[in-house]
Computed example of a mutant assay.
Amino acid sequence: MNILIIGEKVSASELRKKIPEEFNVDHRILVNDSILGKYDLIFDLQFDEKEDNLQYYAPMQDKVIFVGAVRKQLAQIQKDFHGEIQCKLIGMNTLPTFMDRPVLEFSLLEKEDEDILKKLAAKLNWNYCLVEDRVGMVTPRVLFMIINEACFTLQEGTASIADIDKGMKLGTGYPMGPLEWSDKIGIEQVYTTLSRLYEDTADERYKICPLLKSYYLKNKSFY
């Protein structure tokens, strides 16, 4: 099976580790529509930020395209697209650190595509969780809410960055504290996803902490 990964080098390397060595894997930073046809499977890790790439995939009859679909649900992407989508779109949590996990997170545009996902996951030897096609999926939604709350705690002076992270690691068994994890994911990813969640749900849990917004505007990390 020939596989193409589209995305930044760090994210592509994270996904590459999950693909068995027996498969041929190529990497491109940007979409080159002239070569897409030779691949059996395509992963677009930048799709959340570059959904215009759909114009290249849409005419590819029954071609399976895994796309980053955390910030925007697949149904909305389909509605906004001017044309027929003939490929098979499968949403994936492609945010940094989330692909380097025992269980991957996917969503579907069409329920009947679940059989396709099952067969591909078996070939790739992947365990996965199928979640509803919603903004934030599940894991980012929960983690980013915790990161936001950690920012409120920091803003109020209740605890330091190091103490917040230490307390969360000891108390929950998370591999990283929320603020350390935010640095690994990227403050822009956290801020933008929370913004989309608040816009989608109007739920106060996703209303962005002013300190988090300040860090985003300054492109500042916690460490």
Score class of each variant (00 low, 15 high):
50 K>D: 10
70 V>E: 05
78 Q>P: 06
99 M>P: 04
149 E>F: 08
67 V>C: 04
76 Q>D: 15
90 I>D: 07
44 D>K: 01
106 F>R: 02
76 Q>W: 10
103 V>I: 13
102 P>I: 02
166 K>L: 15
138 V>F: 02
118 K>I: 13
60 M>E: 09
166 K>M: 14
87 C>H: 06
98 F>L: 14
79 K>Y: 11
90 I>V: 11
107 S>P: 07
83 G>Y: 06
88 K>F: 00
79 K>I: 10
142 V>I: 14
157 G>V: 06
68 G>H: 13
81 F>I: 01
98 F>D: 00
70 V>R: 03
45 L>H: 02
85 I>M: 08
68 G>N: 15
78 Q>G: 05
45 L>A: 02
119 K>H: 14
119 K>L: 13
82 H>S: 12
157 G>P: 05
62 D>C: 00
49 E>D: 12
112 E>H: 13
170 L>V: 11
101 R>D: 08
126 W>P: 05
170 L>T: 08
122 A>C: 11
54 L>P: 03
51 E>P: 09
63 K>E: 00
96 P>F: 02
165 D>R: 05
159 A>W: 09
142 V>G: 05
86 Q>C: 10
123 K>P: 07
112 E>M: 07
141 R>K: 11
81 F>R: 08
135 V>G: 03
156 E>P: 08
101 R>I: 05
44 D>I: 00
45 L>V: 03
122 A>E: 15
56 Y>T: 01
151 C>Y: 12
53 N>S: 08
98 F>G: 04
48 D>F: 00
106 F>G: 01
